[in-house]
Design a binder for these strands. Structure first.
Lengths: 216, 216
DNA sequence: CGATTTGTTGAGGAATATCAAACTTGGTGG
DNA sequence: CCACCAAGTTTGATATTCCTCAACAAATCG
């Protein structure tokens, strides 16, 4: 068995069922930090990000709020195998979503289409969750931040990359404090690996070196 | 939205399709540390643990070997949505597995049965991976070890619990070093929360207190 | 423009990794 | 039965990383 790097890019949004949701979905606007659904609620609706971004997270009794995932334009979320949401979802910024009920999707595309969509969603969620785990386990703060910035760079066509989330959300996702995230970002900048125009926009200067750090 | 503890027990083995695999599966023995499949190999076979235990892991270029999951008697593994294995699997100890090819399962139970099995496997994998993530993110070494021992206790009917894996595998799963795992175990023992008869067998003395520590 | 939120920087301390050594355990052969 | 060995585990001393607490700067909003 050959040891190999497994740094495959984040799984992109499922593409097949987008069309269906695009056709029959109802447009809904959510303000920054507005809750889209809460954990424990019935999972009847399926969402497609049109503009903006969304995070899914849990609220824990100890006050921690680990972030499960971020969703960007084109991504589908909210579709669950169980009847209830296991996570809550909030808008990271003012966002426009296309929303449809499961029954509407079945009516429009048939049971097959919904099953295919559910399958794709689960495959993607599993991939992303595993990747998330790899990004954290046994990695230093510098590696985590590098890996995170890289994954954003990989899903962006524009060299100028926008951070949809603030430092606190990054920290929660990476299992770090905001101070540590901030320090790592300044370090990476001082090493000329990235360049932040402002705290929400950055360029990757040395992709190779950044990947080396992220790989550990 | 109510903040709540989400410490649900680890998802048990899928129960419905066991019968099918039990009926048509071929018995195969694997020695301790023997590879069952490697990452990148074609994923044609489905496995059910009869006796022993199995770990799935990745080998990383930096020498780390994060462990994805452990499988115990009754658990099904190896069934993938993709055509290739994304992880490798090795026997933790001498193990007996029931093995069947996907095509044999379809022949015996129909396409429906395989799809149901795949679905159940993915739901369980996703749950377990999320739970694994929760066990690690933002938790101290003591919390991780407590949570891990507790999850083992929950799946065991016998009060005397057997650790199927050595310290190194625990450490890899928990994102710690073996020394830290060892120290935490000694601490928990000194606090009379658990009692180790030998390094592979232990009792939970104070389940409540252990859960409190794990919850953080 | 002040007020509030968000992000950065610094100093000190706690937690964990690293390195090294001693100790158990289980097996093998005298 | 005991000596010996190898593998796994525990313990100790030290170094490093990251968190905590605190102050400050910058951006955002009314």
């Amino acid at each position: 068995m050959l040891a190999q790097s497994l740094a495959h890019p984040r799984a992109p949004a499922v593409s097949r069922p987008d069309g269906l949701l695009n056709r029959i979905g109802v447009r809904m606007a959510f303000a920054k930090d507005e809750e889209i659904y809460g954990q424990g609620e019935a999972a009847n609706l399926v969402y497609l990000v049109a503009t903006g971004a969304v995070r899914t997270s849990r609220f824990l009794s100890d006050g921690r709020r680990p972030i499960n995932d971020f969703y960007y334009p084109g991504d589908i979320f909210g579709l669950e195998a169980e009847s209830e949401h296991t996570l809550s979802a909030e808008a990271l910024s003012d966002s426009l979503l296309l929303v449809a009920s499961r029954s509407a999707l079945v009516a429009a595309g048939g049971e097959q289409a919904l099953q295919a969509m559910l399958r794709d969603t689960m495959v993607r969620d599993l991939q992303n969750t595993r990747e998330h785990l790899m990004l954290l386990v046994g990695k230093t703060a510098r590696q985590r931040v590098s890996g995170f910035l890289l994954s954003l760079a990989e899903r962006s066509s524009d060299p100028m990359i926008e951070l949809a989330m603030g430092r606190q959300d990054m920290a929660d996702y990476l299992g770090l404090t905001i101070e540590t995230v901030s320090r790592m970002i300044t370090d990476l900048q001082n090493s000329s690996l990235v360049e932040f125009r402002n705290c929400r926009h950055f360029l990757v200067c040395d992709r190779r070196a950044l990947a080396n750090i992220a790989a550990g």
